[in-house]
Simulated assay, not measured.
Amino acid sequence: MNSFLTSGLIHAAFWVVVGLTFGGAVLAVFPRKIVYNVLGLIVCLSGVAGLFLYLGSFFLALMQLLIYVGAICVAIVFAIMLSPPLHLEVPKRRMGKVVLSAGASGVFFVAIAAVIWKTVWHPAAERGADWSIVTIGHLLLTRYDLVFELISLVLLVAIIGAILTTGFSRRLSS
């Protein structure tokens, strides 16, 4: 009797999470207001994290919440909040800035291409490494924790850059 009740609760929780996921997907697609679309995306991605929990993959569920719900959706909300209204006229681009940004992008591309070209790549199978989710999660939070933190720093710099850009564009338009 007790296992039947537990099994029923597990199945009910599964169907609630599936309903949450599909409901969030519908809310992400059909409303005409973009804020409701983003909220629907957050609900849908949270439901996907619940499905990962149901499948026993706690690491993927946590990464789903941290990366997609916590970072991507928050960045989308910031982009919506900080974008200027569509009825305002966009200032013309200055050719000096375009050339400077194209040059900086070219230098960055050449540097990355040189690093990729000069690196000696070894297939993972030759090293005999274990590439399970548990191992990747352990490596991300121990050996490669600096890289993990740098990703969050890059997101922070992007958000600060968006805020500064919005402040400059609002001063130019007024």
Rank of each mutant, 00 (worst) to 15 (best):
A104S: 08
L45D: 10
S105R: 10
I159T: 08
L45Y: 01
I112R: 01
G128M: 01
G103H: 07
V35W: 10
S105K: 00
F30G: 01
G96S: 09
A28T: 03
A71E: 00
K92F: 00
V147N: 10
I163E: 12
S101L: 12
W121R: 12
L139Q: 11
L146D: 10
A25P: 00
I160K: 06
L155M: 12
G70A: 03
G8V: 01
D130Y: 02
V35P: 00
A49H: 04
K97G: 08
S174M: 07
I72P: 01
R127L: 15
K118A: 13
V29G: 02
A162C: 07
V110S: 14
G56S: 08
G106H: 00
C44Q: 12
L66Q: 09
L156W: 13
A28C: 13
K118L: 14
P85Y: 12
F148C: 06
A162M: 14
M1A: 15
P91H: 06
I151V: 13
K33R: 09
L60Y: 02
W117H: 15
G70V: 02
G103P: 03
G137F: 04
S7E: 12
A104I: 12
A125S: 15
P91F: 04
Y36G: 04
L9E: 06
A113D: 07
A104P: 02
V48L: 12
K118I: 00
V74C: 09
Y36V: 11
D130C: 03
V38W: 00
V35D: 08
L62H: 04
E126S: 14
G106P: 05
R171I: 08
G161C: 08
S169W: 12
I76P: 01
I10T: 10
L60W: 02
V29C: 04
L141F: 07
F22D: 01
A129Q: 09
V110N: 11
I112M: 14
N2Y: 12
K33D: 02
P123F: 11
S132M: 05
I10K: 03
G96L: 11
L100D: 05
T6G: 04
I112Q: 03
S105P: 01
F109W: 13
M1C: 04
A129W: 14
F4D: 15
G167N: 11
T6H: 08
F52T: 04
Y54N: 11
P85A: 11
S152I: 13
R94F: 05
L139E: 09
A129I: 14
G106L: 15
Y36W: 15
R93A: 14
L100E: 09
V69K: 00
T166W: 15
G137A: 15
L146H: 03
V134H: 06
L150P: 00
F109K: 00
L5D: 14
A25Y: 12
L164E: 13
L45C: 06
P91E: 03
V157T: 14
K118M: 10
T119E: 05
A113S: 13
F58L: 11
F30M: 03
E126D: 15
R93T: 07
A79H: 09
F4I: 05
L153P: 00
G50C: 10
L150S: 13
F109L: 15
G70S: 08
P31R: 03
V26Q: 01
